[in-house]
C-alpha cells in the first residue's frame, strides 16, 4: 500500500492522507505511523482519501480508530485488543460528527468492511474533496 500525505485548507488546515492499494494486517501500522507523524507536525484534522484503496480488512478499521485517538489526543488503543477498541468510537456517541478523521470516496470493497462492522456511521464520509475539506 502506498501512503501519500499532503496539506490543504478548509476552515482549518487539513492533512490529506491518500491510500493506494490494499490495507490489511501487513501494513496497517504504516497508516498509524503516518497519523502519528502528521500529528507530531501539528495536524488537527485528517481527511483520508480512499479513492484508490481497493481493499480494507479489520486491521484497517483498527488503524482508522488509532488515527482518531491520535488526533483526539487520547491514549492510542492496543491494536491487538480486538473489538472493544473500535467500539469505543461508537460508544463516544459522537464519532459520526467528530472533527478529527473523515473519509473521502471509499470504494465498494472498503465500504463493505465499514458497513458490516457497523463502522460506516462512525466516520463522516464524503464523495467530493472540496466539500470534505470545508466540512472540518
Amino acid at each position: 500500500m502506498e501512503i501519500l500525505s499532503s496539506q490543504a485548507s478548509g476552515h482549518v488546515p487539513v492533512t490529506i492522507i491518500t491510500l493506494k492499494g490494499a490495507l490489511d494486517g501487513s501494513n496497517y501500522e504504516s497508516l498509524i505511523a503516518a497519523g502519528r507523524s502528521a500529528h507530531a507536525a501539528g495536524a488537527k484534522a485528517i481527511l483520508l482519501d480512499l479513492s484508490e484503496l481497493t481493499f480494507m480488512s479489520s486491521a484497517g478499521l483498527v488503524a482508522l480508530h488509532n488515527l482518531y485517538a491520535i488526533l483526539k489526543d487520547e491514549t492510542e488503543p492496543d491494536p491487538e485488543a480486538g473489538w472493544a477498541t473500535l467500539k469505543t468510537v461508537g460508544n463516544a456517541g459522537q464519532a459520526g460528527g467528530q472533527p478529527f478523521v473523515k473519509l473521502l470516496n471509499p470504494q465498494p470493497a472498503v465500504k463493505r468492511t465499514l458497513e458490516i462492522t457497523g463502522m460506516y456511521t462512525f466516520f463522516e464520509v464524503h464523495t467530493d474533496r472540496e466539500t470534505a475539506l470545508q466540512s472540518f
Partner: peptide, 24 residues
C-alpha cells in the same frame, strides 16, 4: 456472536475477524 449495535461488545482477540467471517 458480536452485536455491532451494542457498544463495548468485546469478543477479544480475533473477534472482529470472526464477526466479519460470519457476516460475509
Amino acid at each position: 456472536t458480536v452485536d455491532v449495535n451494542r457498544p463495548l461488545d468485546d469478543c477479544g482477540k480475533g473477534g472482529m475477524g470472526i464477526h466479519m467471517m460470519r457476516e460475509l
